[in-house]
Design a protein around this nucleic acid. Structure first.
Length: 201
DNA sequence: TAGTTGATCGTCT
DNA sequence: GACGATCAACTAA
């Protein structure tokens, strides 16, 4: 088994962690099944200096996990029906995190298809933050899970060349729209949004 | 293909 | 009481 990314990976500056998360593998052990995906799209959220962040106005019951030490999973519920998952960064007390927006399935694709429930293409399986959570069985129970444990963790994979990383403004937010804190692997089909989707064949 | 809207409820004001 | 770090179904053309 490849080694887990160490705690020190997550404690560094959030924008750097966000870019380096691209290409890494996220592993989810789900009822005896191993689900693996390659991260291809992320967004950074930076607590007190970022009006778009859930933690901008301080600690609440919902965002408590963002204030923990880097290397935890922050899962939140939104639009009355969806979950989204973030990797918490930096030291305890600094509420920053990276939202996982797009993942390329690597292993366990049949389980992902079953969890998504709908008859969709391989791309539609995981090309969005809520789609990824549904495909990987990530719900309220995974909020606060440590990425140093075995239920979920990340492993180092092939590094993405800097020239392949694109950055744009973040999606679906009102405040902080000017910050280009969305990073993705240019040309990868599992990046969310129709502009990047592969044409139907 | 582009644009619009309904679903659905926890969280914070 | 309003709205959201979304998605999918629908409409029009």
């Amino acid at each position: 088994m490849p080694s887990k990314l160490p705690r020190s990976f997550y404690l560094r500056p959030t924008l750097q962690v966000a870019k380096e998360l691209l290409g890494q593998l996220i592993v989810r052990n789900y009822h005896g099944e191993r689900l693996v995906g390659r991260i291809v799209e992320v967004e950074a959220y930076r607590g007190s200096i970022d009006p778009a962040s859930h933690a901008y106005r301080g600690k609440t019951k919902r965002n408590e996990v963002m204030f923990r030490e880097g290397g935890h999973l922050y899962v939140y519920f939104t639009y009355g029906m969806h979950f989204c998952a973030n990797v918490v960064t930096r030291r305890e007390g600094i509420a920053e995190a990276v939202l996982i927006r797009g993942v390329e399935p690597v292993r366990g694709i049949e389980v992902m298809r079953r969890l998504r429930g709908k008859d969709v293409t391989d791309v539609d399986l995981t090309n969005g933050p809520a789609k990824f959570c549904e495909a990987f069985g990530i719900k309220r129970a995974q909020n606060g899970v440590s990425l140093m444990g075995n239920e979920m963790y990340l492993t180092r994979a092939k590094r993405i060349l800097t020239s392949k990383i694109a950055s744009t403004t973040r999606i679906g937010i009102q405040a902080g729209v000017e910050k280009k804190w969305r990073f993705f692997v240019a040309g990868n089909p599992w990046v969310s949004g129709k502009h990047h989707r592969v044409r139907k064949g």
